[in-house]
Every structure is written in C-alpha cells, then in structure tokens.
Design a protein around this nucleic acid. Structure first.
Lengths: 137, 137
DNA sequence: TATTACCCTACTAAATCTATAGGAGTAAAG
DNA sequence: CTTTACTCCTATAGATTTAGTAGGGTAATA
C-alpha cells in the first residue's frame, strides 16, 4: 500500500505544478485545498524541499514552489523521495541493493525473478510519467 | 516493500511445486530448505491452506501439498492471499474498492490515475505468471 | 516591531509486521 | 495401545513503521 505521506506529497506537488511558476504557496493553502493535516503536510513539504524538488520562501507571502518545470519532474524521483526504493525487495533494488539473508542463491530465487519484472514495469511507468502528465486530466 | 510473509509464502509454494504432486511435505522440511522460521512458516502455510491453495495431511508422514497443477496457480491469487490487494491505493482496487476520505473527485485525482496504471501493469505481470513459470529457472 | 510563514526536533498513539509459545488433535508405526 | 511425528489453532509480545501532534525557533516583510 502507498503511504499517506506519498499520497499527500504527490497531491501537494501536483497542486504546486498547477500554479504560476515561482509563486510561493503557503502550507495552509495546500492543506485546505487538498484536505491534508497541516502539520503532517509541513513535514512532507520539508522533505520535498530537502530532496531538491521544492524551493521555499520564508516570511510574509512565503511558501513553497516547484524548482523545475513540471514536465521535468519524473515520478521515479518523486516516488523514491517519498516512498523509498521502487523495488519491492532489496535484492532487486537498483539504488539500495542488499542481499537477502535467507537466500543462498539469488539467481535460483523465484521471488527475485518475479520482483525484477515488477520493478522494471513500475520503473517504466514512473519513468515515463511526469508531474505535467499528472495534471493534464 | 514485500512483507516477509509473502516472500516466505512464495518460496514455500515454489518448493512444493517442485515436488511430486500430492506428496505431503512437512513444515519442518520446508523451513530447513528455505531458511524460514518454523513457527512463522506454520502460520503462513495455514493461511495458504485456508485460502484453498494448499491441502494438508495430518499425523505421521503428513504435511502440505499443492492442490492444483503449478501452471494453474497464478501469482495474482498468491499475491492477493498473502500480501492483500494488488492496488496501492484502495480507490483503484478491483476487489477491495474504497473511496478516499480526502478526495472529493476521483477522476481529478493525480494519484488515482497514476496508481491505475501501476495496478494494471502489475496485474498483467501477476496474471501471466504462474508457479510453474517461477520454478523454471 | 508585529505579523506571517517556514524550520526543526521531539514525541506519541495506533497499526502492522514478525515472529514465538504452548497445547490440542490426528494418523501411522512399532 | 502407546509412542512418535506431524498438523491445527489461539494468543501474545517485541519491534518497527505510520500518521500524525506539539511547540518553540528563525527569517522575511510591511
């Protein structure tokens, strides 16, 4: 299941993607418009900023804004920042590979092979979808 | 991330799929061969039996065995039994649909559209993969 | 200098995951 | 008919993750 953090994060990003570029939107505004708990959203936006996806402006009329053109923000990046590795088991993760403790031979592991296929198909979807695609509905 | 329950469950199923059909294999044997905690595996096999995928024989020389031909056991079924819904959000689940509390309009929700694509691609993979495919490596 | 809004750490309640404990019941072998 | 080798089933517990909440600090602007 997708965590609420990821779900809310994507909603916030798409909301920002719909705004005029560079104009900061306050946490409170996004919180109201997307029905997200203010403090929870605050922490999500913070991680999005630290990851380099968002910029922020402090003080009056401050808020968050997208740093890139929505069509240059791929969902692969978004998912990795918010949800973590795209692979469902670490032994098929490209960026966070780890050997399974219980598995003597990866090439003989059924789960391994299946999850490689799942990973690749998901990577394909996330890779060919951008924020711009998501707001085109 | 895939739960260990699912991972172990798939491993157990593939182990059973490799055996002569109908011959019961004890929990202890599977536990040893696949490096899975005995008691944890016990509870996993129990749910697999209750779901109709496995049969069991009690008493001496008892154990678990596959009820169907491995090529007739689709991973869609296995994943649903062990991991739960294949959809990553309940608003795109075919079997466990639930409206999102925070989302006034599904058709306008970016997460919804993205997750439909993910669900469909995963359903396709699980649907065209059987236990028999998994043991052919 | 008052206000607005982000920044950051820490904390907590609830849920889920990953088992473990322990006994009851069943079937076959000796 | 008793021992042995299994499954069956419920309950529980520790660890981890999730989904927030609390509260003060800091910067920018009018």
């Amino acid at each position: 299941m997708l965590s609420k953090k990821t779900k809310y994060g994507i909603k916030a990003l798409t909301y920002l993607a719909k705004q005029e570029t560079g104009v900061p939107v306050s946490i409170a505004t996004i919180s109201e418009m997307e029905n997200i708990s203010l403090k929870f959203l605050e922490s999500i936006l913070l991680t999005l900023r630290k990851s380099g996806l968002l910029g922020s402006k402090k003080g009056k009329a401050g808020g968050y804004y997208l740093l890139k053109d929505p069509k240059d923000v791929k969902m692969t990046t978004v998912m990795r920042v918010l949800e973590g590795p795209i692979a469902m088991v670490s032994c098929v993760s490209l960026n966070y590979y780890e050997k399974c403790a219980d598995c003597p031979d990866e090439t003989a592991c059924a789960v391994h092979h299946l999850m490689i296929r799942v990973r690749d198909s998901n990577l394909k979807i996330y890779g060919e979808t951008s924020l711009a695609d998501l707001i085109s509905y």
